[in-house]
Nucleic acid binder design. Structure first.
Length: 539
DNA sequence: TGGAGCACTTAGAATGGTTGAT
DNA sequence: ATCAACCATTCTAAGTGCTCCA
């Protein structure tokens, strides 16, 4: 049973995350396996036998030949620069232009290899699976405060070419192989210290119980920290998750006051305060992200609320019969496009005009504020409140509202589930969750269309035609969602924002089995909510 | 007060596995 | 039995926000 009192009483545990922690350390990817002699790389039409290091990097590129990445010039340039660093002096002397490199033979080799793997017998696949299970059993768990807990990512990330999202300036750079000498191990003092691979030692072994990670290293492309951490099903993560929803729940009690306050700020004599008021309004109304500053030219050019630039919004005094329209068009997290036309209050509109006065398109819209300032202000309104809490709060509130609106007791199970899906859809739209349309999208449309016409012509039964037409309609519906070949995602990301207690309560109220809405992984993650008693329910 | 460093959550793509239609 | 569509899982990039230091 989930013990929430740990947090409520405590907070007094001085920020300690655990008392004892024991694990086996991370699992390293297999060594590089050299290509067979009959698989060749060609330069300028001539076969070239590469050194081991250069060959490995070449295979990273060769494996991606069919991917869009390899058509992008910055990917090609970054790859080629980093590849040349791995070459011997002689190789570097010889291989000077990527356009003269021919990886197709290597590419074909890997395609064949994956075909072979697919064609393996059931038994062979089973053996492979067993081996994998054994590794998971050994490395995939740790012992934290006497409990066996699942680890989220126990494998060290294998080397490869960096796949940044959107127009990332570093795409294609070589992500180097991590050595044990670069890894810091975190575990408790008296525990069995993980053993480094033969002939190696760890960078460092530490015993810091104020952090939750088991191992860490610094990645070479962007210099970011990487961590081995626990699975969401663990108690440690579950408590943190619960805590997040508790803050959102507290906001419910305060939100009207906060809204009144930021509306007041719109008429403040200080520009800074006005900007704060309008930014908060966007964060609240549109569920925008906070928008921290980012290192220019080190990352893709994406923004959130505080980092919006003048060029990202267009003001329309009147549009589509509505007054005071703001048109948003910018790239957000993961370079997902945010496009929205929103009617706003006259005061907001006037303020936006003011903020944009005498500025260039590339100037900051909210030039007097940043996320730190905003969060400091929010924290004064309510302890623990930050910009991101609004996303959790508004997503959860939307789900609850939609569920109330769309579900009735007399519905069949199927109808109830449809309502649930629709409610989730509303949240996905609010949070602008999108994913790439499946590559097979166009094709499957065409296939279906062909089938329908084919059957009609053959005079098959009406019911078959009807069923197919329904499928087609469904696809077409998805089609209308499409914007820049993205579709509204009903995937897993929404689960980060929706208080599971809302869903659990809904299931109980309408007699829907929990496994209809949560799969195994989700049930593990939300075990704390599923086990809860009635009084904990109301969001 | 601002920036670097660090730890943690959130995110879509890729991959892998299952299912259901043919 | 096959194959594609669907769904779950894995992977790791890309955010948020706090702390520490000058």
């Amino acid at each position: 049973i989930f013990v929430k009192t740990v947090w409520e009483e405590g907070n007094s545990n001085n920020g300690n995350k655990w008392t004892t922690l024991e694990h086996k350390g991370p699992l390293f990817p297999p060594e590089y396996e050299p290509l067979p002699n009959n698989v060749t790389f060609f330069y300028n039409g001539n076969p070239v036998k590469l050194s081991l290091a250069a060959e490995e990097v070449a295979t990273f590129y060769a494996k991606m030949l069919d991917h869009e990445y390899t058509t992008k010039s910055s990917f090609q340039e970054n790859f080629f620069t980093d590849w040349r660093e791995e070459m011997t002096v002689e190789e570097r002397e010889q291989i000077k232009k990527l356009s003269k490199c021919d990886f197709t033979h290597i590419n074909k080799y890997f395609l064949e290899k994956s075909e072979e793997k697919k064609a393996m017998t059931k038994e062979q696949k089973q053996v492979l699976k067993e081996e994998n299970n054994k590794l998971t059993e050994e490395y995939g768990f740790c012992e934290l405060d006497g409990h066996r807990e699942k680890i989220g990512n126990f494998r060290v990330e294998p080397p490869g070419l960096f796949r940044g999202r959107g127009e990332h300036p570093k795409m294609g750079k070589l992500k180097k192989r991590i050595q044990p000498e670069e890894i810091t191990i975190n575990c408790s003092k008296g525990s069995n210290i993980p053993v480094a691979p033969k002939g190696h030692k760890w960078r460092k072994v530490q015993h810091d119980n104020t952090v939750t990670w088991l191992a860490s290293w610094v990645e070479n492309v962007q210099g970011n920290f990487k961590y081995v951490m626990l699975n969401p099903s663990s108690k440690l993560k579950g408590e943190k998750d619960w805590q997040k929803y508790e803050v959102a729940r507290k906001l419910k009690l305060k939100v009207e006051t906060i809204r009144r306050q930021y509306r007041d700020d719109w008429k403040n004599r200080e520009m800074k305060t006005r900007q704060r008021g309008v930014a908060l309004y966007f964060i609240d109304k549109l569920a925008l992200r906070a928008g921290n500053e980012k290192e220019e030219s080190e990352t893709a050019d994406t923004v959130g609320c505080c980092s919006l630039r003048v060029e990202h919004i267009t003001l329309h005094q009147e549009k589509g019969g509505q007054e005071f329209m703001v048109e948003f068009d910018f790239l957000g997290k993961d370079s997902i496009r945010y496009y929205n036309e929103v009617p706003v209050e006259g005061r907001v509109f006037k303020n936006l005009k003011l903020f944009m006065e005498n500025k260039d398109p590339e100037d900051d819209l909210f030039d007097r504020i940043n996320t730190t300032y905003l969060n400091k202000h929010l924290n004064q309104s309510m302890p623990g409140l930050t910009a991101k809490v609004f996303r959790t709060f508004n997503a959860s509130t939307t789900l609850q509202e939609q569920l109330n609106k769309l579900t009735t007791a007399d519905m069949s199970l199927e109808e109830k589930l449809l309502s649930y899906n629709r409610a989730n859809r509303a949240v996905a739209i609010l949070c602008n969750h999108q994913r790439a349309a499946p590559k097979t999208f166009e094709k499957s449309m065409q296939n279906l269309q062909d089938k329908v016409t084919g059957i009609c012509m053959n005079g098959k039964t009406e019911s078959v035609v009807k069923r197919l037409e329904e499928q087609l309609k469904k696809l077409q519906l998805q089609m209308t969602d499409r914007e820049e070949n993205k579709v509204i995602a009903l995937g897993t990301s929404k689960l980060n924002y929706l208080d599971p207690r809302i869903s659990v309560a809904w299931c109980r109220k309408f007699n829907v089995p929990i496994e209809k809405i949560y799969n195994k992984t989700q049930r593990d993650k939300f075990a704390w909510a599923i086990d809860m008693t009635e009084e904990d329910f109301q969001f």
